[in-house]
Amino acid sequence: MSISIHKRLLTGNKALAEAIALEMESDPNVFVMGEDVGVYGGIFGATEGLYQKFGSTRVRDTPISETGFIGAAIGAAAEGMRPIAELMFVDFFGVCMDQIYNHMAKIHYMSGGHVKLPMVLMTAVGGGYNDAAQHSQTLYATFAHMPGLKVVAPSTPYDLKGMMISAIRDDNPVVFMFHKTLQGLGWMDQLDYSIGHVPEEAYTVPLGKANVVREGKDVTIVAIQMMMHRANEAAKQLAEIGIEAEVIDLRSLVPLDKETILESVRKTHRLLIVDEDYRSYGMTAEISAIVAEEALYELEVPIRRLAVPDVPIPYSRPLEQAVIPSVEAILDAAKQLVQH
């Protein structure tokens, strides 16, 4: 007798849309607002099929008015609604950052905890497809820097769905970043890891819990989203030369699961941090500081970090490939750490 196990595979975008649909079905307060989220289904497919299922009242196309509709999401959330507002590209934050930084992040605090904003600001991040300086950033640190925002950036279809459900149910404002190239869209790079097993039912993945995606004893590599997948590729190649890398998918920048990082560093004594965001004052610096503060004497060699080297994301393919950390760069850095 043979047992066959069927695993349902979904792309990142379909996992996200399914999460939103399930929550919209179970909670009438959940609704979606943004540019082209309706019939179009979101430029990166995050709201695919929702308009057809729920109609224009709950899946609302907005004018190109990010201050207006993100501010409106704040106002509606204060009234007990659970809006999901989509900022099409994270790069567009400049036109609405007052609403995000000064209102969404701070109202709960300034009200002494009396006003809750159970909203999700969903936004597309990431480069690697030659979209140049104003459409390729991740800006993880820009959002993670401001107290009062939860900032999450899932890397797999499974986590995209589970963390979106958690984000919608969270009573805090959550900045939910999905990586464009991990959405599994037909018009972008076809990457195996943009498709994955996703259960049909509503399930949650906690916000603020990192995931050890590969265990190893020689070096810890901490990364998020596309850099985590590249780190994982590098780890496979490292294994072939006898180096066992432990790869941690952060999944969430705020809250930051520092215990998982510290625990791994105490085991491997070597740390490499990889980031698709800018180097200075960013995630790599933050994690380096935490490890220096709390586990400095566990380190056998100095920490290494790979990130965009403080230049805007260039358009030209060879230039862009030079600034976003590659599998090869991760491989080299890890080798150097171990063979130090």
Binding site: T67, G68, F69, I70, G71, A72, A73, I74, G75, A76, A77, A78, E79, G80, M81, P83, D98, Q99, N102, H103, I107, M110, S111, G112, H114, V115
Partner: peptide, 26 residues
Amino acid sequence: FDPNVKFSCGGIVAAGLPHAVGAALA
């Protein structure tokens, strides 16, 4: 912020207007 009577205010010029839009939408 007084949620009991649904009042709020803020220090950024014009920023409360979209919040009222959101309350009206709700």
